[in-house]
Nucleic acid binder design. Sequence first.
DNA 1: TTTTTTTACGCAATCGTTCCCGGCAACGAT
DNA 2: ATCGTTGCCGGGAACGATTGCGTAAAAAAA
Lengths: 351, 351
Amino acid sequence: MKFEAVTIKDIAKALGLSTSTVSRALRDSYEISPETKKLVLEYAEKINYHPNPIALSLKERRSRSIGVIVSEIANSFFSQSINGIESIAYNNGYNVIISQSRESYSRELLNLQYLTSRSIDGLIISVSAETKDFSYFKELHERGMPIVFFDRIVDEIETHKVIVDNYKGAYDATLHLITNGYKHIATLSNAAVLSIAKERLAGYKAALADNELAIDESLIKYCSHGGMLLDEVETAINELLELKKKPDAIVAAADKLTTNCLRMLKARGIKVPEDIALVGFSNTDLTELLDPPLSVIRQPAFEMGEVSMNLLLQLIESKRPVTEFETRVLTTELLVRGSTKKGRTKTKEIA
Amino acid sequence: MKFEAVTIKDIAKALGLSTSTVSRALRDSYEISPETKKLVLEYAEKINYHPNPIALSLKERRSRSIGVIVSEIANSFFSQSINGIESIAYNNGYNVIISQSRESYSRELLNLQYLTSRSIDGLIISVSAETKDFSYFKELHERGMPIVFFDRIVDEIETHKVIVDNYKGAYDATLHLITNGYKHIATLSNAAVLSIAKERLAGYKAALADNELAIDESLIKYCSHGGMLLDEVETAINELLELKKKPDAIVAAADKLTTNCLRMLKARGIKVPEDIALVGFSNTDLTELLDPPLSVIRQPAFEMGEVSMNLLLQLIESKRPVTEFETRVLTTELLVRGSTKKGRTKTKEIA
DNA sequence: TTTTTTTACGCAATCGTTCCCGGCAACGAT
DNA sequence: ATCGTTGCCGGGAACGATTGCGTAAAAAAA
């Protein structure tokens, strides 16, 4: 099956003109007489002519499409970010090709090769939790590919970056717990190599330190897949519950960590927040409907997408190589709900 | 900024060969001597040559990319479907370009024109709730564009389609409520024009009729944006609550309708399921953590995506025009949880 | 040795578009 | 009458890759 399109040649033949004349008429060149232009334009409209973007790409050595790699689309933070990216891309005539690493380095690499081989004009990426080797990004960057890192950034590579103040987000959440009287606060962290994991962990530690609470390494659990696998969260929770001194609150550092942590706690019959309080990073819009309503740190995901795409456009459309890069830091928002209320109205089962 | 790629010419020049020889060597043609092949292959590997897909697309008149249009990615059903589509596409060397209609006809049309102008080889679409005019799809289809409809299909166009048994899904859910003793069952329906809305409504009505329950039109509320707008759900719920005889249960016919219905009920202080029970279509994996845990009708979204992509591949790769089309009907799953339990363990507030 | 076959490669067209260059009228100025 | 100018348009190369066809040299057959 094929989809036959009408070309500039068809117009030229039908009107007895050369392809160059038709091309110029369509682009409204001053070299073409008004009558010819009118003729061409009307005929083009009539037969529904659209320039072939592939031929244009070949000629102009640009595809007008950009690549986006995230760990998974079915994650509210990322789907909201993608919405932001898409909206700006769309307004600028760019195409967005989305792919997922699913937290796997090999899949990320494969996607990357695939995207570059499809000649994308630029790349927006939040690296996978497994990625430790950034040489491929470096090479790409050195060869002139415009790249914007967002969310999970790579420090070693100098380019535009978009993040939230992860340190402050985690600090605020932890402080909120402390203020509410929790003293033995654990944290569920992402893969230790991730920039966001480091920053959030630092915020958590700083809040404890600033309030004269000890930092207990046994209360810090890493989930290398960011909570994507239920198993890793289960293990982490189990280990926390086996401690002599169990935590009375948990700060979860990623969307899936937060919801899967709640899932595991409920599965074990642990009451939130009576037995253990919970606050975490999350962008799901269902958190207030959960039992208990979750206190969350929310990121401006849509806006992050918009900013990333705008920065990428700057890189792509700059005539000379860009040497001045910026890191945009947006702010998180702490939404306090039931899962962290110390003096919460208790519920009790009655027959 | 530009990203300079290495071409077949570079290899030819460096090795003192013609481009044709290099091309043939790379494609392992019998016309090329083993020594030359080895030479070319090794050099290509060394300088990291990758054929330019754009040039190939131009030559072969196919882009090896397909378009997908859904109402919004940030909807679990669609993001899961996209995962399914992507996995198959990826394995077959196809690129997926995703775009969102956000339930708007004009946006859908714009996306459609954009995608076709980007010369996609095929299209997978779930139409927007606003779409009443299918002439553009018809024209596209008649001009030879391979199309697969999924979820929200278009009856008037003969091509492959992938759906679930919406009738049975709604029937089962309604029957489940009836079995549990609910008698005054309302439904929140999607835009009335949508295929899925019609089928689900029919299932709902049939279950009532089969159990000698009257069908009361005042208990049927349409939300033209599928619950995407909180307003429309609010209005619907308000109208239901103002009835002389209020419903004792609700069947929500879409993901957002289900969760936003719960949101509105809670906002009004209505207890679920004590005052009103709720069951709805949903693919979110958080429904069991909600308060109350939601009974849902779940669709095999990932599988639907896989099937759709496989059918599209059949269309694209068929030599002759396809005239035999099929409609794959998958089955839904009813997950019974707290939101529909008549004799549910009551919870009571205590000081 | 001559003819035929095989091997191994180059030339050039093609896909759809843009754009440099060159050309030919018609015009006014000298 | 000649020259330069301007307006308008066509020829053809180029982007990167594939491929039918032609052909030189080497090998095989006569």
